[in-house]
Design a protein around this nucleic acid. Sequence first.
DNA 1: ATGGCATAATTGTTATGA
Length: 257
Amino acid sequence: MVIATWNVNSIRARLDRLRAWLQRRQPDVLCLQELKVVDEAFPAGPLRELGYHAAVHGQKTYNGVAILSRAEPREVHRGLEDDDPQARLISARVAGVRVVSVYVPNGETAGSEKYAYKLAWMERLRDWLRRRCSPDEPLVVCGDFNVAPDDRDVAFPDLWADSVLCRPEVREALAGILAWGLEDVVRGHHPEGGVYSWWDYRMLAFPRNNGLRIDHILATPVLAGRCTSAEVDRDERRGDKPSDHAPVIATFREDRS
DNA sequence: ATGGCATAATTGTTATGA
């Protein structure tokens, strides 16, 4: 089973690239973030043509998350169920795996209201997992966490030390989510670091490889133990009109138990 | 000094991202 996640930075601006990528990589599940579209305008038809169902939690202009899957998604839930006005979480059961697609707030700058919202949102995500899910079930939380777990995930750590992607508070918040019972499968396959998923559009960040790994696939132990590869599709950041994020892809072998 | 570049809302400019 191949599970991927990708912050597409507008699904309408990225539709041609998304379709080509799906045809090339054929994942079983793709979690999407930053759709920037309302549900009614989500391009379900062009994705259905390629064999993908879509569970969508959209929003005008900002945010918006979805789960695409070859098997029909069941038990779809939208949002953190505590009246969050921002569309940042959707979950569904797909072929026996509970899949959660999240778009953690960026946080703007340390000390801002948005930063407080980011930290609170991450704590609410942890509460949501505790309340609704079990670390003993096959489950993945995929998405744009807007956190580089440690300096191995930052090409130039000194440049980014004070950013909202690297500050100690957000790293501790991410560690808290992992402590519920999740493993970072890309870290598991690349403990040496140097794997990045996001490069700023500005300052020639991609050619200079000024990147950070902020998009993650986190799996419960029962599933992480079946993970045979976990990579970033760096090539998708190249060419015309890329997203500023590259897809992350993990392969899980079938349950042999 | 706090930009650059991209997107969506609109058609000149602002909000947001990370």
